[in-house]
Structure formats: C-alpha cells, structure tokens
Amino acid sequence: MAEQTSTPNYGYENTVPIAEGLFTWPSNDPRLLGSQCQDCGVVTFPVQSGCPACSSTNVETIELEREGTLWTWTIQGFYPQRPPYDGPETPENFKPFGVGYIELPGQVRVQSRIKTEDVSKLRIGMSMKLLVEQYIERDGKQVMSYFFQPSDEL
C-alpha cells in the first residue's frame, strides 16, 4: 500500500469513498491509486492484482499524478438508466455531464467524470486537475467520488 498523506480524520467522519481503494481517503490532498508493474513499469487504474501488459503479479500500489491533460472527451447527453446509474439528479433536473480520459504524464490515462461549469468548452489537450468531492448522499453519509476539473476553473 502506498503511503497516505498524513491527515487527521477530523471533519471527515460523515464521509465515505464511493469505493475502497480507488483514491486515498480521508485526505486533504487525495490522490487516485493505481498499480505499477515492478517488471515492465506499466501503470493501471484502478489497482489490480496483475499487469495487463506482461502478466506479472509483481505490482505495487502507487499514488497517481493530480494533474494531466484531456486526451479525449464526450458529453453524456441523456439521463442514464438506473440501475446501474446512481447519480444525484432526477430525469427532470438532469444536465448533460462530461466524461473523458485524462493523461497523467508518464503514467496512464484515467477515465473520469469531468466537473465543469460549461461542457461546451471541453477541448482535447486542456489542463485538468483531480478533485474529490461529494457525489451523492447515501444512508446519511456523504459519498465521495473523484472528478477532473479544467485547471482554469480552480
């Protein structure tokens, strides 16, 4: 397991990550977690038990870069089927959202929801930064998920 940024749990009692092991949590500076093959160097997201490139099982969990560039994107234009979708909206107040692959330099491209004020501004190559924030509420807890956001909106 990678070293987690040392953060007191104060203020995070009411939060849960959307999935264990997807990103460091709780943390003031959360990072996505991936696997790096110790034999060929290939990085994957999320963590997995073997290397998809060389089949080695000699993989270690690493923290991924927080910043990268948008490699490709789309806009989800219709309300997704529930299940599997479990977003905060209803069909009535649904707004199209961005999805893309963010290239993290020297590591891997990760698929992510994109948080932006204006989906029409999405462009290949734009700078993006990781953000972990509340996605939905479930059983009285804030369910935290990861997003990437255009750097110029931060």
């Binding site: 959307i18 997704p80 996605y135």
Partner: peptide
C-alpha cells in the same frame, strides 16, 4: 466495480 455504474460511466 459497482462505483463505475454509480457515477455514470458504464
């Protein structure tokens, strides 16, 4: 993983 469907990427 279930989360992948939850967030609307499946």
């Amino acid at each position: 993983g279930k989360w992948y469907g939850d967030v609307g990427m499946a």
